[in-house]
Design a protein around this nucleic acid. Sequence first.
DNA 1: ACGTTACATTCCGGTATGGGAATATGTCAA
DNA 2: TTGACATATTCCCATACCGGAATGTAACGT
Lengths: 130, 130
Amino acid sequence: MARASTTSDAFNAVAEPRRREILIFLAHAERPVGEIVEALGVPQPSVSKHLRVLHDVGLVRMRCEGRQKLYRTNADAIRPLHEWAATFERYWQHQLLRVKERAEEMVRQGAINVSPAETKQKPKRQKERR
Amino acid sequence: MARASTTSDAFNAVAEPRRREILIFLAHAERPVGEIVEALGVPQPSVSKHLRVLHDVGLVRMRCEGRQKLYRTNADAIRPLHEWAATFERYWQHQLLRVKERAEEMVRQGAINVSPAETKQKPKRQKERR
DNA sequence: ACGTTACATTCCGGTATGGGAATATGTCAA
DNA sequence: TTGACATATTCCCATACCGGAATGTAACGT
């Protein structure tokens, strides 16, 4: 076997930088192909081919209107990616939390001035890690 | 040009399912190659090759101990992936809400008959030029 | 019907892949 | 040294890529 098809899942489809750009561009509004071509400065056939891949894995939705086709990012299809990456969140948040906690500790001990007035303890937001 | 190298960035490296499995497996503790082989049931040369790719893009760290090499996931290298995906977070958060709002809007404009009544003309869609 | 506009598809070529098998490297132990 | 163990590398091959150029297709305007 060789490398998996780009259309095999969102992970493979998103591996291509140009496709990520397209997804960002189509995230907030639907656009005809021509505008993507213009915005990204990529040849039209190339854009069409990328859109085909994205559409095959459900990362974009398409709607016909007259002779143009309006594409739009389907954010839901990106969720699996986000959730997979979030699996590792606790490993990097752990470090950040320690930095934050140390800073707070120093503030509490008056080693750092937060405001020139009295140091009121404000309720600290804490993210609950499952 | 062909498809980008798997070692070109984390996105490409992670496109391979087996490599994602390895990253998960190495997330919470460092392991020698042999344990990965045993845990995933993949031939040793294959695991070594995957580890090489992951190491090239910084997704894993390696430490020698005697004749075995201990690998562990470097979660920080996954953050860019997570952050890119998080760009779309707001879109899937509001997606259901928007469907509902659109439906309500259509009802308000009479494009949809909620109760059996007269048929009104439906508003034409207009393309807003940015 | 004809030409134009808006996309999609096909063909090509150079490159890189991942699996399997075989082999190389490196470290320990007797 | 010799051998056993732990990993890494190399070779082969079928597959699939992306870009560019050319071509196909469908919907308009006149």
